[in-house]
Simulated assay, not measured.
Amino acid sequence: MSSSPRIDESLRDTIISRPDVILEDQDVMRALIAANERSMGGNIVDLRGIAMDRLEARLDRLEDTHRSVIAAAYDNLAGTNQVHRAILRMLDPIEFEPFLRDLGGDVADILRVACIRLVLESSENDSEPEMARLGDILSMAEPGFVEAYLAEGRSSAPLRQVTLRQVHNAEPQIYGNAAKDIRSEACLKLDFGPGRLPGLLILGAEDQNQFSRQQGTDLLAFFAGVFERTMRRWLS
């Protein structure tokens, strides 16, 4: 008589009728392979088992990469939808003041930022009452301010249309009372056409990781392009 314990008949019948259940269960397969290696003794090297282990490790890495790619694709799709919604909301107002008010309200909420600020360079002293009313959104600056703000004191720094960076001491001239809470920002350099001074649209965030130099800028560059063209209508 065999001293080996017999497997339960119902379980045996299930395995015989559905072997794929065993093959698809990684934990069960590992246990079977380990039992087979123990039965061969310590003096035998199972090259097939080693190869299988390596293939399994490569498969795990491929699955991780696959999940990362899918997650990144979903993030990109969500970001695209977010920017498109913000643009559509930005295009709704037909007057300049509501247009700016929406930037600091609905548009900022859609983009999930703490605040949005618009800086316009001007060679004149713009201190009219309407400018004061929009002081929490709109700031006037002297010519050259935009480049100086983006360069952060580095004269050789290349100026891109979109600059993403962390902020340690936010500029009160830009953010006002919200400056103490800003930890990162997206700076969108604006070109209003020939003969006009540049502007700057700044998105401030309380999360220091919301905007960083490693992130892509294509969507924000598109947003800046739409904003430029909309502003030209008001400035004409």
Score class of each variant (00 low, 15 high):
residue 95 E to V: 00
residue 232 R to M: 12
residue 109 D to Q: 14
residue 123 S to C: 06
residue 92 D to Y: 07
residue 92 D to H: 05
residue 25 D to H: 13
residue 228 E to Q: 10
residue 202 I to Q: 02
residue 137 I to R: 09
residue 183 R to M: 07
residue 220 L to Q: 00
residue 39 S to I: 06
residue 185 E to D: 14
residue 216 G to A: 07
residue 179 A to M: 08
residue 58 R to C: 05
residue 69 V to H: 12
residue 50 I to V: 08
residue 155 S to K: 06
residue 149 Y to G: 00
residue 156 S to Y: 09
residue 199 G to N: 15
residue 63 E to Y: 13
residue 30 R to A: 12
residue 11 L to N: 06
residue 31 A to E: 14
residue 149 Y to K: 14
residue 41 G to P: 03
residue 193 G to N: 13
residue 144 G to W: 11
residue 204 G to V: 01
residue 227 F to Y: 07
residue 185 E to T: 10
residue 205 A to N: 08
residue 15 I to H: 05
residue 11 L to M: 08
residue 116 I to M: 15
residue 176 G to D: 08
residue 42 G to K: 11
residue 93 P to V: 09
residue 222 F to W: 10
residue 86 A to R: 06
residue 232 R to K: 14
residue 103 L to K: 00
residue 116 I to F: 13
residue 190 L to F: 05
residue 224 A to Y: 02
residue 165 R to D: 09
residue 108 A to T: 03
residue 100 L to K: 11
residue 46 D to K: 11
residue 46 D to S: 13
residue 226 V to S: 02
residue 50 I to Y: 06
residue 101 R to Q: 15
residue 70 I to D: 04
residue 55 L to D: 09
residue 177 N to V: 14
residue 63 E to T: 04
residue 207 D to P: 02
residue 188 L to N: 03
residue 155 S to H: 11
residue 79 G to I: 03
residue 42 G to P: 02
residue 30 R to L: 10
residue 223 F to P: 00
residue 186 A to R: 05
residue 204 G to R: 03
residue 150 L to T: 03
residue 207 D to W: 15
residue 22 I to R: 10
residue 128 E to C: 07
residue 203 L to A: 03
residue 216 G to S: 12
residue 112 R to L: 06
residue 96 F to W: 11
residue 166 Q to D: 08
residue 207 D to K: 14
residue 45 V to N: 09
residue 19 P to C: 11
residue 186 A to D: 02
residue 38 R to W: 06
residue 116 I to W: 09
residue 70 I to N: 02
residue 57 A to T: 08
residue 130 E to P: 02
residue 232 R to F: 04
residue 185 E to L: 08
residue 2 S to I: 03
residue 212 S to G: 05
residue 113 V to F: 11
residue 70 I to Y: 10
residue 154 R to G: 01
residue 26 Q to H: 13
residue 98 P to V: 01
residue 118 L to M: 03
residue 119 V to W: 02
residue 137 I to K: 03
residue 121 E to F: 09
residue 162 V to Y: 04
residue 157 A to S: 13
residue 63 E to G: 01
residue 203 L to W: 05
residue 95 E to I: 00
residue 56 E to D: 08
residue 230 T to S: 04
residue 28 V to W: 10
residue 200 L to C: 04
residue 69 V to K: 10
residue 130 E to R: 13
residue 140 M to G: 04
residue 100 L to C: 04
residue 174 I to K: 09
residue 25 D to V: 05
residue 16 I to G: 01
residue 203 L to G: 00
residue 5 P to Y: 05
residue 78 A to T: 06
residue 81 N to T: 01
residue 222 F to I: 06
residue 173 Q to W: 11
residue 79 G to R: 13
residue 153 G to L: 07
residue 177 N to A: 12
residue 57 A to Y: 13
residue 205 A to E: 04
residue 144 G to M: 10
residue 154 R to K: 15
residue 191 D to A: 04
residue 195 G to I: 15
residue 70 I to E: 12
residue 3 S to T: 07
residue 227 F to P: 00
residue 199 G to M: 14
residue 15 I to F: 15
residue 223 F to V: 00
residue 70 I to R: 12
residue 162 V to M: 03
residue 78 A to C: 05
residue 20 D to R: 14
residue 228 E to W: 09
residue 123 S to W: 14
residue 161 Q to T: 06
residue 127 S to V: 12
residue 119 V to G: 00
residue 9 E to Q: 11
residue 146 V to I: 15
residue 25 D to R: 12
residue 45 V to P: 01
residue 110 I to N: 00
residue 91 L to I: 05
residue 28 V to D: 01
residue 182 I to S: 04
residue 33 I to E: 07
residue 26 Q to V: 12
residue 41 G to F: 12
residue 178 A to C: 02
residue 52 M to F: 10
